[in-house]
C-alpha cells in the first residue's frame, strides 16, 4: 500500500481525536466518507461499476464466459476474482509492486463469496457437468486513499447488480449431442439476485477505539484491524484480522458488533441507489470518467 509517513505527534493527535469521536476530517468513528457510485460505465463488459470513496477510486468489470463446472460442484457456476493494482494509483505498484496486495485482495474476495448464500451459483449452471457460466470479476484500482476492501466490495455488489447474462437455450444437435444457442435479442437476458451479496467493513483499532473507513494516515496509526463482511440480514460471511498486531478478545467482539451494525446499514441505501439509477434508464446522464 502507498506508504504514508506519520510522525509521533501526528499519531498522538489522531489517536486522541478518535478517543473524542472527532476524526481529523470531522467524521465520527462510524462515518464513511462521501461515496459516489455509478454502474454500466464500461460498454464491453456484461456488468460494471465504479465507486469513489474519498479519493479511493475502484473500477469493477464483470465478464461472463461459458466454461465447464468444477467437478466438486457439477451443478453450479463459479466466480473468478482478479484484482489489478495499476501503477496509475501509486508508483509503488509499478512492475510487480502491487502483486502482493492484489493477491491478498483477491484471496479475501474468494473467502467472502465462499458460501452458498452470497450468490445463487446454481442459477449460473447451464447444463450440469457440461456447461456453466463463469463470471470473471476484474477489479482495477485507479486511486488508493485507504479502505480498499470496502470500496471494492461495494463496487462488486453494484457491478453484479448491473450484470446481464444472455439467455442460453440447449437444443438437440444434429448428431445427438446438445448444442448451445445464444439468444440474439440483447434484452433477453438473465439478472442475478444480489440481495445477499455481502459488503466488507474494515475496522481499524486506534488507541482503545476503532474506526471504519480509515484514511491512509489513520491506518498508519493502527497496528491491527478486523475485516468483517456482512450481508443485508446482518450475518457475517467472513472475518479476518489484518495488520501486524494482536487484539484483545473483548475488542474483537466489540469490533464485530460494530462491523455488523455498520455493514448492515450499508445495504439498504446501496440497493435503493442502484434501483433509482436503473429506473432513470436512458435519461440518466452518464458521468463516467469525466466527473
Amino acid at each position: 500500500m502507498a506508504a504514508v509517513q506519520v510522525c509521533e505527534a501526528e499519531k498522538v493527535y489522531i489517536m486522541h481525536g478518535v478517543r473524542d469521536d472527532l476524526r481529523v476530517d470531522g467524521r465520527g468513528c462510524e462515518d464513511y466518507r462521501h461515496m459516489e457510485i455509478e454502474t454500466d460505465v464500461v460498454s464491453n463488459t456484461d456488468g460494471s461499476a465504479r465507486v469513489k470513496l474519498g479519493y479511493t477510486d475502484v473500477l469493477v468489470g464483470i465478464k461472463a464466459e461459458i466454461g465447464k463446472p468444477k467437478p466438486a460442484a457439477p451443478d453450479e457456476g463459479y466466480l473468478e476474482f482478479f484484482v489489478d493494482c495499476s501503477a496509475n494509483a501509486t508508483p509503488e505498484f509499478e512492475g510487480r509492486g502491487g502483486e502482493e496486495l492484489g493477491s491478498e485482495l483477491s484471496c479475501t474476495l474468494y473467502k467472502v463469496f465462499n458460501n452458498v448464500n452470497s450468490l445463487e451459483l446454481r442459477a449460473l449452471c447451464i447444463a450440469p457437468r457440461e456447461h456453466c457460466w463463469v463470471l470473471y470479476v476484474d477489479v482495477l484500482l485507479l486511486q488508493c486513499d485507504g479502505n480498499l476492501f470496502d470500496a471494492i466490495s461495494i463496487a462488486i455488489k453494484a457491478a453484479l447488480f448491473n450484470t446481464r447474462i444472455p439467455k442460453v437455450t440447449i437444443t438437440e444437435g444434429e448428431e445427438g449431442g446438445a448444442e448451445l444457442e445464444l439468444s440474439d435479442d440483447p434484452y433477453d437476458c438473465v439478472r442475478l439476485n444480489v440481495e445477499n451479496v455481502p459488503c466488507i467493513v474494515t475496522l481499524c483499532k486506534i488507541g482503545h477505539r476503532h474506526v471504519v473507513d480509515a484514511t491512509l494516515q489513520e491506518k498508519a496509526c493502527s497496528v491491527a484491524g478486523l475485516l468483517v463482511s456482512v450481508t443485508h440480514k446482518g450475518t457475517i460471511t467472513c472475518v479476518r484480522k489484518v495488520g501486524g498486531g494482536s487484539l484483545e478478545p473483548e475488542s474483537i467482539f466489540e469490533m464485530t458488533e460494530t462491523g455488523k451494525r455498520v455493514g448492515k446499514a450499508l445495504h439498504a441505501p446501496l440497493m435503493k441507489l442502484l434501483r433509482d439509477e436503473e429506473a432513470q434508464g436512458k435519461q440518466r446522464q452518464k458521468v463516467g470518467f469525466l466527473g
Partner: peptide, 18 residues
C-alpha cells in the same frame, strides 16, 4: 490473552461467531 490471528468463513450470526 491476546488474539493474534482470526479467520472466519461461512454464513454465521454475530453471536455465534463470538
Amino acid at each position: 490473552n491476546q488474539v493474534s490471528g482470526l479467520q472466519a468463513d461461512g454464513d454465521m450470526r454475530e453471536d455465534t461467531l463470538a
